[in-house]
Amino acid sequence: MSTLLEVSGVSKTFDGFKAINNLSFRIGRRELRAVIGPNGAGKTTFMDIVTGKTRPDSGTVLYGDKGQSLLAMSESRIAQAGIGRKFQRPTVFEDQTVRENLTMALDGSRGPFAVLWSRATREAAHRVAELAGEIGLDGTLDRKAGELSHGQKQWLEIGMLLAQNPKLLLVDEPAAGMTPAEREHTTDILVEAAKTRAVVVVEHDMEFVRRLNCKVTVLHEGSVLAEGSIDHVTADEKVIEVYLGR
């Protein structure tokens, strides 16, 4: 599998606390990867570094065919290069309909003027309908986003990110606060999305990670503690000790 993202020897210290400690791992081009670990393991800092929010003290982060350094790029340039991030709390335009939210997010209409003056072309309308189908919101296109359930808002935000056609999607704890049925549907959305791009899911919920059925990277004290299938990592003595608290 060809590499899309390569993190090598990355370290970051905040006020004497080493949040990331010589972190190295790779993500493939069309791969679903789960990143787990206890609080303070470095999961959020890792995402902050990849998206340009935080600069590491040392190491390299290379992305894409030509191995571009993400550390030389601004947050907006990284987003334009095809890296999308979904935070824990859904951020959607609550007063706009599901259709309007997805239309605003469509690739190519990022500028405010493009959004204001664009006429909903047939192509855009078709893509919006397609996205709504992918995230399971095709029956809610004309409902205001504020009326959706928590789980539906999470799906809408994932749809808005997919509308921008990212090559790498970072998703932070998507299962938090969801019903079992919503979590099942979220699994389906992420598994499907990873068929055409890389999807990295940062999660605490081990059952949710098990359902994703993908390679798992366990972080502890800012570096990789174990890597492999969920069965492999949950049977690892070091993981049991630090993560499962036994």
Rank of each mutant, 00 (worst) to 15 (best):
R33I: 15
K195S: 07
A194W: 09
S8D: 14
A226T: 08
I135W: 04
G9P: 10
T234K: 10
M206S: 07
V61G: 15
L244E: 06
V209D: 01
R122G: 09
E221Y: 13
D142M: 02
L70E: 14
T187S: 03
R33V: 15
G133W: 03
R29A: 15
L219C: 08
V199C: 05
S69H: 07
G133H: 09
R85D: 08
T97E: 01
F93L: 13
G111W: 11
E182H: 00
N39D: 11
Q80P: 11
G82I: 09
G159Y: 01
V191C: 05
G177F: 01
N22Q: 12
A163W: 03
S149N: 03
T121C: 03
L225N: 06
D231H: 11
R99W: 10
F93C: 06
A125W: 03
R127M: 06
L244C: 05
H185K: 02
I230S: 11
E31L: 15
A34Q: 08
R26Y: 15
T3S: 12
V209E: 00
K53T: 13
G146S: 14
A124Y: 01
F208R: 01
S11P: 14
G146L: 01
E147S: 10
R89Y: 00
L156Q: 07
K215S: 13
E157Q: 02
K167L: 10
R26F: 08
E184N: 04
Q68E: 15
E134F: 04
R211T: 05
L141C: 03
A181H: 06
W117I: 07
R122W: 06
P166N: 03
I83L: 11
M73V: 13
Q68G: 09
T97P: 01
S24Q: 11
V202A: 06
T45Q: 09
G28Q: 14
R143Q: 14
G139K: 11
P38M: 07
M73E: 12
A181R: 04
I49V: 12
T51K: 07
A198P: 10
K86H: 01
L190A: 00
V35K: 05
T179I: 03
V239T: 14
R99Y: 09
P90N: 04
A193Q: 04
W155K: 03
T187R: 02
L71K: 08
T13L: 15
S2N: 15
K238G: 08
G146W: 00
V7T: 11
E237Y: 08
G245Y: 06
L141G: 00
V218C: 05
N165E: 14
L244S: 06
H204R: 05
L212W: 03
E134H: 08
G245C: 02
D48T: 02
I20F: 14
E94N: 06
I240S: 04
T140L: 07
R246E: 07
L70H: 10
H185D: 05
N213S: 14
D142G: 04
D236H: 05
P166C: 03
R143C: 02
A129C: 06
D57G: 12
G9C: 09
E94G: 01
L190G: 02
T217N: 10
E173I: 00
E134W: 05
A19V: 13
F208C: 00
D236S: 05
G16C: 12
R210I: 00
V239Y: 08
E130K: 06
K144C: 04
V61N: 12
A34T: 08
K53P: 07
M1V: 12
K53W: 09
V200T: 12
A41S: 13
I27Q: 13
I36V: 15
